[in-house]
């Protein structure tokens, strides 16, 4: 007996896109985003299979495995899974596609949202905030609100591509990640002088009465913040120092510098 399947329309996909906002609900170390991933697709499964609870149950259980990806990319994958379910693809195939894609997609999504949009929006909005303007946080809320509701587009995109998605992603992921990397790194370079204040106090003088800060400024303005970031980068990268330990070390260093009166 063949299982009858109903078609999904644009409204169903858009609804799934909105429900995917809850994708990280009930996040646990064991299977990470699995419960929320299933949650968003339930109305779609119900529409496809109607009263056939057996198939709904199978479709739900099929997606309860470990998944961890960037949230927008999860929406994309949910759209993809729904299109494959609707087309009546083998469950094993659906599972394999999902499992194979969520890792590479996480890298792509993180490059776009965490490493590019977050530093840029934070930089612009913080400079407004620190000038005392309420538009800092308001603009931030608007930017990320748009980003959030763009999930509807990701849902449609994933649904539309279906199995064809795999080729397109693997063909363009490297170029997109590289471009996002350039954008993000250059912005971070631009943030260093404005957001790190690392300067010795004027009363801190070397032998002969030369201001220590003056010496550094003579070489290159902001060389201390730049050097400081590279020092921290080195500690993370080469020495594998724990983040929390490094934060505590920075605070301890600051208190000692304050006690000695050099900063």
């Amino acid at each position: 007996m063949t299982v009858s399947r109903n078609k999904l329309d644009r409204k169903d996909i858009d609804k799934m896109g909105l429900l995917s906002i809850l994708e990280q609900s009930c996040f646990s170390f064991e299977r990470m985003q699995a419960p929320g991933f299933v949650y968003g697709m339930i109305p779609g499964f119900k529409k496809i299979y109607g009263d056939n609870t057996e198939e709904i149950a199978k479709a739900m259980s099929n997606n309860m495995d470990f998944i961890n990806t960037e949230p927008h990319m999860a929406t994309f994958l949910q759209g993809l899974v729904l299109s494959l379910e609707e087309a009546g693809q083998e469950r094993e195939l659906i599972k394999n596609i999902k499992t194979g894609l969520f890792g590479p997609l996480a890298g792509l999504g993180d490059a776009i949202f965490w490493f590019t949009l977050l530093p840029i929006s934070a930089a612009i909005c913080c400079s407004l905030s620190s000038q005392g303007s309420v538009f800092g946080p308001i603009l931030y809320i608007i930017i990320w609100g748009i980003s959030c509701f763009s999930r509807i587009w990701f849902a449609r995109f994933g649904y539309k591509l279906g199995v064809g998605a795999i080729e397109i992603i693997s063909a363009n992921a490297a170029a997109i990640s590289k471009a996002a990397g350039i954008l993000g790194v250059m912005v971070v370079g631009g943030l260093i002088p404005s957001y790190i204040s690392f300067a010795f106090s004027e009363s801190f003088v070397a032998a002969g009465g030369v201001s220590v800060q003056g010496v550094f400024d003579g070489i290159l303005p902001n060389i201390l913040p730049l050097g400081f970031v590279f020092l921290l980068y080195w500690a993370f990268r080469k020495k594998g120092v724990n983040t929390l330990l490094l934060i505590v070390l920075v605070i301890v260093f600051s208190i000692i510098a304050s006690y000695l009166g050099i900063m």
Binding site: V185, S197, I251, F253, I256, M263
Partner: peptide
């Protein structure tokens, strides 16, 4: 000292991004 640390700590965030 905490005030100085407040000026330095954004460096931790930026360095982590760079990693």
């Amino acid at each position: 000292g905490f005030e100085i640390a407040g000026g330095l700590l954004p460096g931790v965030g930026l360095a982590l991004l760079l990693v």
